[in-house]
Design a protein around this nucleic acid. Structure first.
Length: 92
DNA sequence: CGTATGACGTGCA
DNA sequence: GTGCACGCCATAC
């Protein structure tokens, strides 16, 4: 079989399935991807693979912090805020 | 192939 | 409650 990069591939699929108004933590995504210890890689993959088809802005930290975003943390906060997601970094 | 990085997490002071 | 340091995995160079 080819090197399908199961991890990144799975991560993208999971993130794409995230419904509006719902957010997952990096750790949650990593666990669903099959590697609960790879939350580090999750952020890394999304960072280098900024795909507009992927609502990566719905991925937040376990501390309920907004985390980061390729287009700017501010943009990420705005999107989540519009979806009704509470962020610890920013009060709604 | 080996080293360094990074959108993190948890522990401890 | 806040801040600092270490550990962790996958990817990029």
């Amino acid at each position: 079989m080819k090197h399908e990069r199961d991890f990144s591939n799975k991560v993208f699929g999971i993130v794409k399935e995230i419904p509006k108004g719902k957010v997952l933590t990096y750790k949650e995504v990593a666990q669903r991807a099959g590697n609960p210890r790879a939350w580090r890689a999750v952020g890394n993959i999304l960072n280098k693979n900024k795909d507009p088809k992927i609502p990566c802005h719905r991925i937040i930290r376990s501390d309920e912090k907004v985390g980061g975003y390729n287009r700017g943390q501010k943009q990420k906060i705005a999107l989540l805020k519009k979806e009704g997601v509470i962020l610890k970094n920013r009060l709604n």
